[in-house]
Design a protein around this nucleic acid. Structure first.
Lengths: 232, 232
DNA sequence: AGAATCGGATACCGATCTGTATTCTTTTTC
DNA sequence: GAAAAAGAATACAGATCGGTATCCGATTCT
């Protein structure tokens, strides 16, 4: 058991194999980093740092990842990293904010492909989650992971988390109103449970199938009120 | 924002206020540590260490908690800690195992008070979760928190996690068979989503009400098959 | 061409980390 | 009461942490 990254990870953690040659391409830098990949950062130094930090944070945790390792993987100097982000805390915040933005961007672009009613869209949430879970390098939601790692009383972090959640929740509430659920706020809370539960269950088990189970529960929920009406 | 424990935490983190006097009573040692409290460790040195480690791990995370801080809070010497647990990894494993055992002991003792059918017991799961969430020092499930903090490929940790989950899942499966759900394995998976989702949602929001929402979803699920029959 | 900015390389600082060695005191056990 | 085990106190080792200072090369802009 390893708290720190295993020795075998060194090859993938570092962008270059000890001998400095050409820097790792961006696509490789964030390979298997889930939502990060969809961001397609431009190849500026800050972007490379963010991509490298995302990968390492998600694979080894925030506290366990050192600044030196991030700079090494990004193929940049620690000096530059600090020049752009100030300190590690602000880097973590920047990573979370960009992770959230990248995830939402990906999610809603997938959702834009869905045709049908608001109910169809609400159910499609879990189909999209399923493709996320099926990524071989799926590591769970960075926000949920950060939730357990940092102190409970961390205002800045909880603010970033709340902002991310409110984006999705606002959309769900709008769909719920279209469907005509008796209390959209309740629907949002119930979907929160289903989404977070599916994420954690999939992460813990490595089984993407929980997305389908959550979808089944959501369908049950939507069918429970309004037996056949409420279509928009 | 503080990654490391805030300076103001020092007063509660340390068992003694810098000047070594009488060691902190065990009840205070694990005050507000949620499930740990229910364990009621005996006052031996290993037990004190486990209680102190649980409290600190849950409040500040595993990686962010140093061995020195654990020994300080336990009112013991670091030497004794290492004599009993070998190293920090084994201490973490011991803490998780004991946390799991304590939680299950508490959970099933609460469940023993529930009268009624298997369906009633399955719904009572969320009432019990609700009392857990309502603890002012509720910090989420230590296993879920550990999931995000440690490396994905951590065999020992995942084994402990799986063992904990299988205890609860086995019980749920038994109840599901009594109720007569079409596929008990499906029911277990769906309850996993509801339970984990409620835990994470309550942790993220600080609102214990998610237990009730999850209970509502569970009731919907149980009522969906077998319209009026299947009582045992 | 000259100036200015950006970024890489390296060494370093103080603090903290896990873990150990040593010494002494207390408690248990026979 | 003596032997033995357990624990406290202290200091320390080696490594790594976050963060900074300095220097130098390359690029860009006017």
């Amino acid at each position: 058991m390893n708290i720190r990254p295993t020795p075998t990870d060194a090859a993938t953690d570092a962008a270059t194999p000890a001998t400095a040659e050409a820097p790792m391409p961006l696509d490789d830098l964030c390979a298997g980093a889930g939502t990060v990949c969809s961001a397609r950062y431009r190849a500026t130094t800050p972007d490379r740092v963010l991509a490298a930090a995302s990968w390492l944070f998600c694979h080894h945790g925030f506290q366990a990842t050192g600044v030196d390792a991030i700079a090494r993987r990004a193929g940049t100097a620690k000096t530059s990293l600090y020049k752009h982000f100030g300190n590690k805390e602000q880097l973590i915040e920047a990573v979370l904010e960009r992770e959230g933005a990248a995830w939402r961007s990906w999610f809603f672009s997938e959702m834009a492909k869905v045709e049908g009613t608001a109910e169809d869209r609400l159910l499609a949430v879990f189909d999209i989650l399923g493709t996320w879970f099926a990524d071989p390098h799926f590591f769970g939601c960075p926000f949920i992971n950060a939730l357990g790692e940092f102190d409970v009383n961390n205002a800045r972090l909880r603010k970033i988390l709340a902002a991310h959640k409110s984006h999705l929740n606002g959309w769900i509430a709008a769909q719920a109103e279209m469907v005509g659920t008796p209390d959209p706020a309740d629907t949002v809370a119930q979907f929160t449970i289903l989404i977070d539960g599916a994420i954690v269950a999939a992460q813990a088990s490595g089984n993407p199938g929980y997305a389908r189970q959550a979808r089944g529960l959501a369908m049950l929920l939507l069918r429970s009120h309004a037996p056949a009406s409420a279509r928009k």
